[in-house]
Measured scan of single mutants.
Amino acid sequence: MEVRTIKVFTTVDNINLHTQVVDMSMTYGQQFGPTYLDGADVTKIKPHNSHEGKTFYVLPNDDTLRVEAFEYYHTTDPSFLGRYMSALNHTKKWKYPQVNGLTSIKWADNNCYLATALLTLQQIELKFNPPALQDAYYRARAGEAANFCALILAYCNKTVGELGDVRETMSYLFQHANLDSCKRVLNVVCKTCGQQQTTLKGVEAVMYMGTLSYEQFKKGVQIPCTCGKQATKYLVQQESPFVMMSAPPAQYELKHGTFTCASEYTGNYQCGHYKHITSKETLYCIDGALLTKSSEYKGPITDVFYKENSYTTTIK
Rank of each mutant, 00 (worst) to 15 (best):
T192A: 09
L81C: 08
L212R: 04
Q20D: 07
I315Q: 15
A289D: 15
N111R: 05
P249H: 06
M244W: 02
P97Y: 08
L212C: 09
D303H: 00
T103L: 03
K298T: 12
Q134W: 02
S246E: 01
L65T: 14
T19V: 13
Y155Q: 02
K229T: 11
A132V: 03
K46T: 12
Q98K: 12
T232Y: 08
Y72T: 06
E281S: 09
T260Q: 13
G101E: 02
L151G: 01
E239L: 09
G194R: 01
E264Q: 09
N89K: 14
D109S: 04
Y297A: 02
R184M: 04
C112F: 05
E253G: 08
E264A: 10
S213V: 01
V243I: 08
D77C: 12
T75A: 07
S263Y: 03
Y269I: 15
A262E: 03
E215A: 06
V99T: 08
T199V: 12
W94Q: 04
S310F: 14
V221Y: 04
V67Q: 13
A115W: 01
G288R: 03
D135P: 05
F305Y: 07
Y265D: 00
T312D: 06
T64A: 11
C156R: 01
D135Y: 08
F242P: 02
F174T: 06
N157H: 12
L153K: 00
T10R: 07
I286L: 03
K293C: 10
D23I: 14
Q237Y: 14
Q30P: 06
S240A: 05
S213K: 04
K7M: 12
I223G: 14
R4H: 13
G164Q: 03
Y265P: 00
K255C: 10
E253P: 09
T11N: 01
T75R: 09
A117D: 00
K191C: 07
V304D: 06
Y73R: 03
I152V: 08
T313R: 15
Y138W: 14
F174K: 06
T43M: 10
A146R: 05
F56A: 05
T27L: 10
Y284Q: 09
E2S: 10
A87M: 03
C261A: 04
T27R: 09
I105A: 07
R139P: 02
H51Q: 08
Q270V: 15
Y155F: 05
Y72E: 06
M85H: 15
M26A: 08
Q20Y: 09
A115E: 05
S294W: 14
D23F: 10
D180R: 08
A154K: 02
C261R: 04
D13T: 06
K275L: 02
T75F: 08
E2H: 07
K229C: 05
A150V: 03
V8M: 14
T43A: 13
S181G: 13
Q216H: 08
C285W: 00
C271I: 15
P248L: 10
L133C: 15
Y113C: 13
F217T: 05
L200S: 09
N268T: 14
E264P: 01
C227G: 01
M245P: 06
A69W: 04
M85S: 04
L186M: 14
Y36F: 11
M26T: 15
S295A: 15
L102R: 12
G257Y: 11
M245H: 01
S50Y: 13
Q20C: 12
T199N: 04
T278G: 10
N111A: 06
W94E: 06
S279G: 10
E253M: 09
G29A: 06
Q31M: 10
Y172L: 12
Y72W: 07
A289Q: 07
L254T: 00
E239V: 12
E68P: 04
D303R: 05
Y96Q: 04
G257I: 01
C261N: 01
K95G: 09
N268R: 02
V304M: 00
A289I: 07
T198V: 13
H256Q: 13
N14M: 14
S213D: 12
L59E: 13
H51Y: 04
Y113G: 03
L121S: 06
E281D: 15
L186A: 05
